[in-house]
Amino acid sequence: MNDSFQKYYRAMQLELKLQAKAKSTVDNYLRALRRVNDLIASPLDQLKEEELKLYFSELVDTYSWSTVKMDRCALSFFYQYVLKREWKWLEIVRIPRVKSLPDILSQDETLLILSHLEKARYRTCLTAIYSMGLRISEGVRIQTGDICKDRMRLHVRNSKGYKDRLVPLPQVTYQMLRDYWVMHRNPLLLFPRYAGKSRSNSKTTLHMDKGGVQSAFKAALADSGLAKQVSVHSLRHSYATHLVEAGVEAGVNLRVIQEILGHSSPATTAIYSHLSKPVIQDSDGMINKLMQRLGALR
């Protein structure tokens, strides 16, 4: 890195921190800044329109549209907060609006995949992710203090957008979590990082690695024989769809489901009404009924 780039790189880091950007956004924006610096000869504060056109043209040929969009957003942030200039080249590259629907697993398919998870830590974690509609980062970080047994709720803390939410905790999931916790008795974490058979998992303050959970899901999917392009996050999409389907019969409205999923916009939740078959405020009873079959995994 030359001195000029190091100066702007550090300034970008500072502004991203001050603007409270998520760690993933910080990493992506800084990666984009390095990429621009590597591929364009002009200094970052002297970028020309023609150079940016060529840069984005190569980016479109090499990377996905999500990466192209990320680099455009990163440069816009750099101009606005670091250079204190107006970003004038918004239309250099136009990102296509793709309205794709997520891949969904049926309840039978979900149960089939979960039943192929041999290790208790992965089976319990992925069952919790599905049965409460969690993101993978939310699932691996569950702490003992997040569980409210009296109200049968899980307190999801500091999630996407730095928001907390309370989600219904199905009885069968609570029992699975408790059974697994008894195996390690870590006072802080439900899913402590595995320390190996010869070392104790009861004292670590590190939670389970997301990569291990993703690999376990991928292996279980292969063992299940299902030919679907799905991931751990598909469990959250599937939960939302199944909830909408069950909610239509039970009378639970989409606003309740929006709160459970932690969506900022009702439009995000409404996507699942397009994926479900054609919502009473008794959402707890509906969710417990929906998740009863998971008891076979214990």
Rank of each mutant, 00 (worst) to 15 (best):
Y8A: 08
Y162K: 06
R72I: 12
V36P: 04
G262L: 00
E58T: 05
T205V: 13
C148E: 15
F5P: 03
M1A: 12
E138V: 11
L75E: 08
L111F: 10
G212I: 02
L169C: 13
H116S: 05
I271T: 09
S76C: 04
L16F: 04
D164Y: 01
K149A: 09
I129C: 11
L169N: 12
Y180K: 08
R185W: 09
A267V: 14
N253S: 15
I40A: 13
Q214P: 01
I147L: 13
R178Q: 14
R236S: 05
P187V: 10
I271S: 04
N253G: 08
V82K: 02
K149C: 01
S265D: 12
V172Q: 11
D45S: 06
L126S: 03
K277T: 05
I280W: 07
Q171M: 15
N253W: 14
L33E: 10
E50H: 14
V68E: 09
G145L: 01
D71V: 06
G133S: 10
T205C: 07
L112S: 11
L30N: 12
R141T: 15
L188F: 11
N28Q: 12
G262Y: 00
T25Q: 03
M176G: 02
Q13R: 12
R199T: 00
A219I: 03
L75V: 01
Q13W: 06
Q46W: 04
T127H: 02
Q6K: 14
R34W: 06
R236L: 06
I113F: 11
Y79T: 01
S115I: 13
V82T: 04
I147T: 02
D38N: 13
H263G: 01
A216C: 02
V82S: 02
R151H: 09
N37Y: 14
